[in-house]
Design a protein around this nucleic acid. Sequence first.
DNA 1: ACCTGAACACCGTTCAAGT
DNA 2: ACCTGAACACCGTTCAAGT
Lengths: 242, 242
Amino acid sequence: MPPTPRRGRPPRAARPIRRTLSLSVIVDAALGIIDAEGLDALTMRRVAEELGTGPASLYAHVANKDEMVAAALDRVTGEIPVPAEIDPSRWQEQFAELFRSARAVFTRHGDIARASLGVVPTGENTLTLANTMLGLLLAGGVPDRVAALSVDLFALYLGASAFEESMEAIEPTAAEPDFHAELHGFFSNLPADRFPHLVAMAEPLTTGNRDERFDFGLDLLIRGIESTIVTGKSAHSRNKHQ
Amino acid sequence: MPPTPRRGRPPRAARPIRRTLSLSVIVDAALGIIDAEGLDALTMRRVAEELGTGPASLYAHVANKDEMVAAALDRVTGEIPVPAEIDPSRWQEQFAELFRSARAVFTRHGDIARASLGVVPTGENTLTLANTMLGLLLAGGVPDRVAALSVDLFALYLGASAFEESMEAIEPTAAEPDFHAELHGFFSNLPADRFPHLVAMAEPLTTGNRDERFDFGLDLLIRGIESTIVTGKSAHSRNKHQ
DNA sequence: ACCTGAACACCGTTCAAGT
DNA sequence: ACCTGAACACCGTTCAAGT
């Protein structure tokens, strides 16, 4: 007996429609989980479930979990807009802008930047970003050595900032409206004889939002790099610290 | 029948002599595992085993694993030597020295610094260290705001550096004597039309050891902080980046 | 070649029960 | 109050078997 013909869309399973597995599809699912629930919620089992299969099936397309996370990270890195044109006269602004963009993109994808720490960057998009950063610094007249080390350093800063922010995100409980007041109270109530500076500085230690903190570090690092540039005209020997 | 009297040391069990449980003893065991095998090998079960008991017993002394790790971290922080006396005229050197010491201490304890990222520092020793850092910066004439933000920033840098180094430690396999050559080959064999700067800078990108990289970032940050100091004599408005 | 069910060898934490 | 055995609800990865 032939099946009764159906009109309209075929009926779908409640959740996961069967898509043929591929790295791309796996990364889609992984990013969906990361965006919604964060890196800790990302498990092979969870990804498999989202795709309507078992965890073992994923291993035909990724060697292990780390490789899957690296692929997701590179995909996100591809979303960072790179400057259309490099203007050597304002490399600092372009550099700062690039990093603020990078942070914004990572922030849109939960705490995925945590995974960037200590990963050797071999993804296409990550290499493109590194190449752009390097070009920006070199165009600005930064010494080769400094430029090379700076790329690593800034990547470290970006990853670490995201890591820290993702930890803080858990901190303020729903029932705790004023996290600043609590933290300020903690510092100012410390024994003043043992921690005089912490007590005295309770206010500046506990004010400032994330953007300000990030920009502060970014600004500091760029200033540091600037100080290594020896201008062609009035070249002066640069001593360390003064 | 009375037990036969024994001379000399009493016989010990092969492995774990029964010590009454306490936070201190738990931290001892945890640090032993971290030092020998790293943070990934640290599990509640492993610590319990080391102490000759079951994992559930630990929960009478620590609320959870995070608290145990935090306690271990604070213990290690206590090993960092703080400057006996603050000399405002050379705060930069003292600051740099303090950070190099901190890194050395953390390095002695495997990759424990990984745990410092994103942890709100409430331990005794960590507070003491933060207080010292703050004092050093303020003595050097660094503005309050900058000093407060800098303490956080440097802690971030220290933790992130250790994190990165602990990852790299796994990288070079025993059968891979020349990791530098391999990495250099990777960059120089990249398509030059897409990644021109990475190809051209393959050499500076892959040279330099960990100490140099750490010192570079440390130096850069200190230079950045210096640039925020407005001297009393010739006070000049400081514009961002030139 | 790709996919699967089932298993292996682990986790952190809880809980009722003991002392 | 402190400790325990046993269990709960998970992990990443492997492997023999299927198609």
